[in-house]
């Protein structure tokens, strides 16, 4: 196997720091360790749980997760299906990537649609331009219930948000899908135990210890494909609430907003109407890694309107059963 010496590239420049001289790693570097740890978790949950599912949004984190799952069970096919919670407000490039990637792995794709949840009258339609971000929790929990899934792999990382920083790698959910941050199961060593009673489930986060930079370095190392919107491209955008939103079917310019044509890319992929673009000329993985290394603003801070509602927006959504 290839051993990459990633450490020398892996810098955020620090001041006032002494450094110990680095011997060439005889064993493995941090990406190798993170990769094996994630593969180990995928296999443990697949072995212990009856009906796992891998949540796949088409974003970079879930793409890495699916890639790792393929490696974990090679040369066999995945022993679980892949599920997309479809809000109906997707970037078309991401849907195309989803279908191509899932087809390449031969996995079974389950699509659960927020529109169906709306049509069943379980939640209220916020309209074409309103956010369906919070509604997808209902769709997700229904799909988990209806399919009898007892474990759901997600690509969430602990460096994304302060509530995620608190969550176990295997996170227990009660029959209502709720996360109780005050009653988490102790998680000792690498002894992940995912047994649940009927109706309960676990969320498993194999990428918990990865940072945004780790993800990008791994994508470069593995030469993975990604949706094109992650790379710099020209797009009509409007500035709204401090974020650049791409003009399209889910974002119509308001009267006081000026449409500009800029070179942008997306640092995260969520719904088209609440995911902001960043001004960027980074059109290659190498350029993106350089950009991420020097970034002053976190990826969710830069690009997610859904996290800006309150101090504990993520904790509140997670308690309800969000990803």
């Amino acid at each position: 196997m290839r051993i990459t010496i990633g450490s020398l590239e892996y810098t955020r420049t620090l001041q006032n720091m002494t450094t110990t001289p680095l011997r060439p790693p005889k064993f493995t570097d941090h990406l190798d360790l993170l990769e094996s740890h994630a593969i180990f978790i995928l296999r443990e949950v697949a072995a212990e749980c009856e009906r796992p599912v891998l949540l796949f949004s088409g974003g970079k984190d879930s793409a890495v997760l699916l890639h790792l799952a393929t490696k974990a069970f090679a040369p066999q096919q995945l022993p679980f299906p892949v599920m997309h919670i479809d809000t109906g407000q997707n970037f078309p490039e991401v849907l195309a990537f989803r279908d191509a990637t899932v087809a390449a792995t031969n996995a079974r794709l389950v699509v659960a649609k927020v529109q169906d949840t709306i049509d069943q009258g379980k939640v209220v339609d916020p309209g074409l331009l309103g956010s369906r971000n919070r509604l997808q929790t209902v769709t997700l929990l229904d799909a988990i219930n209806d399919n009898g899934f007892d474990a759901a792999f997600g690509g969430a990382r602990r460096d994304e948000d302060k509530a995620r920083a608190k969550e176990r790698i295997l996170s227990f959910r009660d029959t209502f899908g709720q996360w109780d941050p005050r009653q988490q199961r102790p998680e000792l060593w690498q002894l992940y135990q995912g047994k649940v009673n009927p109706g309960e489930h676990v969320r498993a986060f194999p990428l918990s210890d990865w940072t945004e930079l780790d993800i990008w370095q791994y994508i470069e190392r593995e030469q993975m494909a990604l949706p094109t919107i992650y790379f710099a491209h020209e797009r009509d955008v409007v500035m709204r609430d401090g974020m650049w939103l791409g003009v399209g079917p889910f974002v119509e310019p308001r009267v006081d907003e000026q449409v500009e044509h800029r070179s942008v890319r997306f640092r995260t992929v969520g719904d088209a109407n609440c995911t902001g673009a960043v001004l960027s000329s980074a059109s290659t993985l190498r350029a993106i890694i350089d950009e991420v290394t020097l970034a002053n603003v976190s990826e969710r801070g830069a690009t997610r309107a859904d996290d800006k509602f309150s101090e504990t927006a993520m904790e509140d959504r997670k308690r309800e059963g969000y990803f």
Binding site: S7, Y10, T11, L14, T19, K162, K166, P181, R182
Partner: peptide, 15 residues
């Protein structure tokens, strides 16, 4: 502090 928070830091030689 109620539960463990995981944080990540990098220096030129270490994660």
């Amino acid at each position: 502090t109620i539960d463990v928070a995981y944080r990540y830091a990098t220096t030129p030689t270490r994660k």
